[in-house]
Design a protein around this nucleic acid. Structure first.
Lengths: 199, 199
DNA sequence: GCGCCTACTGACTCGCGAGTCAGTATGCCG
DNA sequence: CGGCATACTGACTCGCGAGTCAGTAGGCGC
């Protein structure tokens, strides 16, 4: 087996772990699964991560990091606050791509009993709501939005999206298009802009 | 150990199973835990339920049934549709009591990979939204609410509550009072009534 | 080429938890 | 009372998956 530098291999393992956890869920992922997808021995995984616990925690951290990187990119791009908000909402909604909402739903359940994972989930949630709140705030100052309490509004918007995402991914009762439409409408109403402005 | 009739013992086991799953989560609940809380042998549990799979599925079904019974009671009580809606919303919001939202969050995660559990979760979701939709419909006919699409509105209301409940139970970032207030405000806005009417 | 650090493996151990089964005991019916 | 159906148990088996360890080999500095 081709030898790698430690940091490279760690990254590889984390990518694989995120994939397996997304596929199988936290509870059903065995470290052997992760090793197998990489074509390495399970012992190697334990060489890089002391225990399964730590591996999965690191994997979630990794996934969270990726997600937040994409968020940061969406924020930093130039444009009006309206355009920025549009980008953020569109990023948050369930997409065809990785890591996917199944991972977050699974992470919530795990976080109920695992304080370390809870921290990661909370960080993720905080950063998204903070990003939305900041954008709303800035938009209000620019006279673009009307919103008495941006912080609370941001939390309600993310909550609605979380709930709609459960409908879409768990119950399979909601199309992504519908989800996006409803989110847009709600956000628009809360900010006193026309829904089409967020399309 | 005191002998019971089959149906009595089954019920007892299901109650205990719901308790253990709520406490430990689906993945970490062992049949030995359930047996232990009842002070019986694990073999007895397997005498009544063929496998752990079936036990947990039956337990979820049991919990869902209980929840829907409480819903039915709230619906059938006399009063205006406004009062009925108020009761339904208040029942849906996280309460101090059993079975509790942790169970549902856990069930969602489990449902992602287990079609049988998914059916139960979906049923629960359907019944709640249907109950809300029916109440809205009836209220619209009575000229009490204004709502162009009661079915969709009901689904948005439950979604918001689901999302807020995640905030409250997983991230622990939201008080129940706040959750109730925001839900009430949203429902009121969607139905063109004053928020205090739902308090 | 010669070490030598370090990434990596095969082949284990070990405990845990699902599920089984040959029996035991309890209460009901005659 | 005796007999019988059935609720129930103790003491197993068995497989699986986490974690270990004594080694092996790849690549880099010299």
């Amino acid at each position: 087996m081709a030898r790698r530098r430690v940091d490279v291999r760690r990254e590889e393992i984390l990518d694989a772990a995120v994939g397996e956890v997304t596929r199988r869920g936290f509870a059903r992922t065995r470290v052997a699964d992760v090793a197998e997808t990489l074509g390495v021995s399970t012992a190697l995984v334990f060489y890089h991560f002391d225990s399964k616990q730590r591996l999965l925690a690191a994997a979630l951290d990794h996934a969270v990091g990726r997600d937040l990187d994409r968020l940061a990119a969406a924020i930093s791009r130039p444009g009006t606050d309206l355009a920025r908000l549009r980008r953020i909402l569109s990023l948050y909604a369930p997409q065809g791509s990785a890591p996917g909402w199944t991972l977050w739903v699974d992470a919530w359940a795990e976080a109920l009993r695992n304080p370390e994972l809870r921290t990661h989930c909370r960080t993720l949630d905080r950063q998204w709501t903070d990003a939305i709140a900041a954008t709303i705030n800035s938009g209000v100052e620019a006279g673009m939005f009307v919103c008495p309490d941006p912080e609370s509004t941001a939390r309600r918007i993310t909550s609605l999206m979380d709930g709609l995402s459960v409908q879409a991914t768990v119950h399979r009762r909601l199309s992504r298009t519908q989800l996006r439409t409803w989110t847009r409408e709600y956000a628009a109403a809360q900010l006193a802009v026309h829904p089409d402005a967020l399309a």
